[in-house]
Simulated scan of single mutants.
Amino acid sequence: MSPQQKALVVPHKQGNFELSSRSIPSPGAGQLLVKIQSAALNPVDYKIKDSGSYVTHYPAVLGTDIAGIVEELGEGVENFGKGDRVVAHGKFTNDFTGFQQYTLTAASFTAKIPANESFDSAATVPLGLDTAVVGLYGDQFGAKITPPWEEGSGGHESKKPIVILGGSSSVGSYTIQLARLSGFYPIITTASPSNEELVKGYGATHFFDRSLSGKQLLAAISEVTDDPINLVYDAISLPETQSVAWELLADNGTLVLTLAASVKENEGKGRRVVSTFANPHIPENEELCSSSWAKVEKWISDGTIQPNKYEVLPNGLEGIIGGLERMKLGQVSGTKLVAHPQETQ
């Protein structure tokens, strides 16, 4: 194996992507070296490039959704072997990112890919699923619901309504599936009409057009349930969707956002707004995400969690540049874009 690999880098703060080469890292304790077969794209990737946030060292390699083959095991790694097909949630440190041909992964946030799934479909899971997990179940960055896989959770969310705005987004789709696992009912979601069957396939019980105003949506939901809406997960979190969510939310309810809040909590109704932060590597999320990652292989295998629909980009790592541009322009809906780093010329 060559000690060098190809990588797509941001050469300096807010710089344009360029193809480069960098050393292949060696795994430390609790880590795996993975040859990346598929890397999925996320909006955060172009936002980091454009804003220069999150990243402190340049040239920087981005990408957190990783699927590939285990090449080498670090000290103390159990339950994995060389040649295993794995999926992992990377982090924004160059040796642990996805837009390159080899990366390190933390064993705690790596899972085997079941035989019935491809690298491409598995790569759509990590960030979307972790954002749903932390947003619903996190103490610090979530709604503090008891995870359904914990002993004694006893389906106590059973028959409570939940509203998920943006159900066809990656985060929205995994939130719908976890809401089903937690026993919420009805599971109400919004999306564009072309994605109605998609979100119902994930487990949404009721679908409404995302173009409805807050008042229209509230009226439509009141036809579905008389119960107060104590939990809204806004997977889009633009100011306009946040204001819709705020209109729906009952007194003392929780609004989970994937971006910074533009609505104000101080309306005297005891409502809570939480901007989720789904990095599994930070201390606040480590225990929760370790427990959910221990379930990922089984969830994907038995269909509890369906990966996203995906589209493969051409031209290896270079294809990521155009893919992120399409995402930025709003030209991607209900589909995850996936690149093949090994096909880089």
Rank of each mutant, 00 (worst) to 15 (best):
V125C: 10
F119Q: 07
A88V: 13
P27D: 09
Q100W: 04
G98P: 07
N79K: 15
H57Q: 14
A107I: 01
A106T: 14
A67P: 03
E78W: 01
V34L: 05
E117M: 13
G90T: 09
D65W: 08
K82M: 13
A111P: 11
I69N: 03
V133L: 15
G98N: 11
L41C: 11
L33V: 00
L73Q: 09
V34F: 04
F99R: 10
Q101D: 10
A111K: 08
V87P: 00
L62E: 12
Y137V: 03
A60C: 06
A29M: 07
T93W: 01
V34W: 02
Q37N: 13
A123Q: 08
G128M: 09
F80S: 04
T64A: 06
V134L: 04
S38F: 02
H57A: 12
E71D: 13
A40F: 05
A60H: 07
T93V: 15
V125W: 10
T110A: 08
D130E: 14
D139Q: 15
N116L: 05
N94V: 05
V77E: 01
T105K: 01
A60N: 07
G28Y: 00
F119C: 07
I69Y: 00
T105N: 02
F80V: 06
D50I: 01
S38I: 02
P27S: 06
S108V: 07
T105W: 01
P59H: 09
L104P: 04
S118D: 06
N94H: 06
E75T: 15
V87S: 01
G128C: 13
E78C: 04
Y46G: 04
G83C: 05
